[in-house]
């Protein structure tokens, strides 16, 4: 490929250093212009948008996935909060129910006891009344017996029946 124009052996005359050979500059610039324009147009019009599209698509996908993940996490957190609230509600309700039933039971027991006590008191009172009545009846019988007995004793001793009113008076003073 060594042609006459460019090599150093041309007639023993030393050719200039290749990068400074003026006659090659036009060709270099010509091809450089064509190549660089083709490269620039190919990249900017077609390939770089394609490449950036792929990258953007991936970034969107990752972003979307992260968003979905964070939404799911928020949802699960909300569910947990709801669950805990439900649990607390149920517990409070159970406690309230327990307290209520306890109070009811206590009230019922109280009422029953009171009723029982009232019954007993009534019975006691009735019994006391009866005792008192019996006692009164018995005491009035004692008076009659004492009057009779006193009248008979006086009659036996004096041979003469005393006046009934006097005996009664005497017995009454003795009894009281």
């Amino acid at each position: 490929m060594a042609t006459k124009a460019h090599t150093e052996v041309a007639g023993g005359k030393k050719a200039p250093f290749p990068p400074f050979q003026g006659e090659t500059v036009a060709s270099q610039l010509f091809w450089l212009a064509i190549c660089f324009v083709v490269l620039y147009v190919g990249l900017s019009r077609m390939l770089l948008p394609r490449l950036s599209g792929v990258i953007a698509q991936r970034n969107d996908k990752i972003e979307g996935d992260l968003e979905t993940a964070s939404r799911f996490r928020n949802e699960s957190e909300a569910a947990q909060v709801a669950y805990e609230k439900a649990l607390a509600d149920a517990r409070a309700k159970a406690q309230a129910l327990a307290a209520e039933s306890q109070a009811k039971a206590a009230a019922a027991a109280d009422a029953q006891r009171k009723q029982l006590e009232d019954g007993l008191k009534n019975k006691l009172e009735a019994a006391e009344k009866q005792i008192a009545a019996t006692k009164t009846a018995a005491m009035s019988n004692v008076r009659g017996i004492a009057i009779d007995t006193a009248g008979l004793i006086v009659e036996r001793l004096t041979g003469k029946a005393p006046a009934k009113q006097a005996v009664e008076r005497a017995v009454d003073t003795a009894l009281h």
């Binding site: 490929m1 060594a2 290749p18 010509f30």
Partner: peptide, 27 residues
Amino acid sequence: FQIKKIVTLGHIGGHEIALTNSAVFMI
């Protein structure tokens, strides 16, 4: 570093435009 001419394509303003090894590598 020698630029070697492969085919001369023509001249623009008196300058020779050739397909060279440099051009081949740019392409």
